[in-house]
Write a protein that binds this DNA or RNA. Structure first.
Lengths: 187, 187
DNA sequence: AGTAGAATAGACCAACCTGTCTATTTATTC
DNA sequence: GAATAAATAGACAGGTTGGTCTATTCTACT
């Protein structure tokens, strides 16, 4: 059960960071929520900053995993899989643990581009773009690099605006634009 | 010269908040940069939180003003004015005082939707959308509400991604998508 | 059953934070 | 030149933060 405490801290930290921000969430609140002693955190993660980085990496893994999962579950066709990803965006915004903009939050709170959290956020965005690139290529769409960049922009933008407006519309709008882009790239 | 000190504090605070974040910027650093006594700040703004709100409102005013200015300078045609706004996005990202995502940063650092900074950010996004709505309507484009929402999503998304990737591409991609959307809405 | 490693509670520290207070100096205005 | 207001420096308070340390208890394994 050595790693169970670790996972517990990671999970609670993620929820708190997401809901209240990184700087605003004190170490003590994480401990309290996780029901764990202070030294458990510091023995496992070394510092709050490293904990933040691990939370970001884990969140990225979870999100990317879910995206792939949903895509595969929706269809065998790459073209349709791309659209499926955008369709699930709106649902995920209403998910209680909606962490869509956690990476935007990270760059906002750690504006130094070379800081570990900013780098983790950048890495996530690269992964996101890569997924789209893979699907675009498989689907035989035109200018897949440019197109995947645009799709990543749409999904990032949608989750940002969603966080601002607390609405579902940005997801629908993004889907609509994605459909147009795909259609144009398909012949 | 009563208000000159005020403006000075406002300007320095804006630069620091933008570069280092809201929570990470202590009041003392603002004072030091502005060359101003502590009481000057507290007499003028009451609290750091209120200062933050004023900075956000001022930033919004500046940005919206610049957008309108650029649009008017570029053309008389509303259709072209919309595109002009997107063309200046890329330039503004390279501006040393690029504060594009300051509102995204605000919602990230003050996640409570009812908090004053989050409300200020929401208000900015509404203003942004409204500008597009006005131009879309004037240009006689189809479904102006939906279209303006999408344009606002594109411009917000672009500045978010730009902050993450430190690249110019998101602006170019956003412009490209905007061109497509406008074309489709114009007949 | 005994030993080693993990986890615990909680005191503790130094640094930093926002915000207050005061006594003094600087400008402005009449 | 006197009076009013604004700005100043700087000490101060009270609270919070991230992080360390210690002495104790729990848990697992052989």
């Amino acid at each position: 059960m050595a790693s169970s405490k670790r996972e517990q801290v990671l999970k609670c930290a993620r929820e708190l960071f997401e809901r209240e921000g990184f700087h605003a969430t004190g170490v003590d609140r994480i401990l309290e929520k996780a029901g764990v002693a202070k030294m458990t955190l510091y023995n496992n993660f070394g510092s709050k900053d490293q904990l933040i980085v691990e939370v970001l990496n884990q969140s990225s893994e979870i999100m990317i995993g879910r995206m792939k999962e949903h895509a595969l579950a929706a269809s065998n066709d790459s073209y349709e899989q791309i659209l499926a990803i955008f369709r699930t965006l709106g649902d995920s915004y209403q998910d209680p643990d909606f962490c869509g903009c956690m990476f935007q939050a990270a760059v906002a709170e750690f504006p130094d581009h070379d800081s570990a959290p900013a780098q983790a956020a950048l890495a996530h965005h690269r992964r996101l773009t890569e997924i789209f690139l893979e699907l675009c290529t498989k689907a035989g769409l035109k200018s897949p690099e440019e197109l995947s960049r645009k799709l990543a922009l749409l999904s990032s933008g949608a989750s940002c605006v969603a966080r601002q407006t607390k609405a579902r519309t940005p997801a629908d709008d993004a889907l609509c634009i994605a459909e147009i882009l795909l259609e144009r790239a398909s012949n």
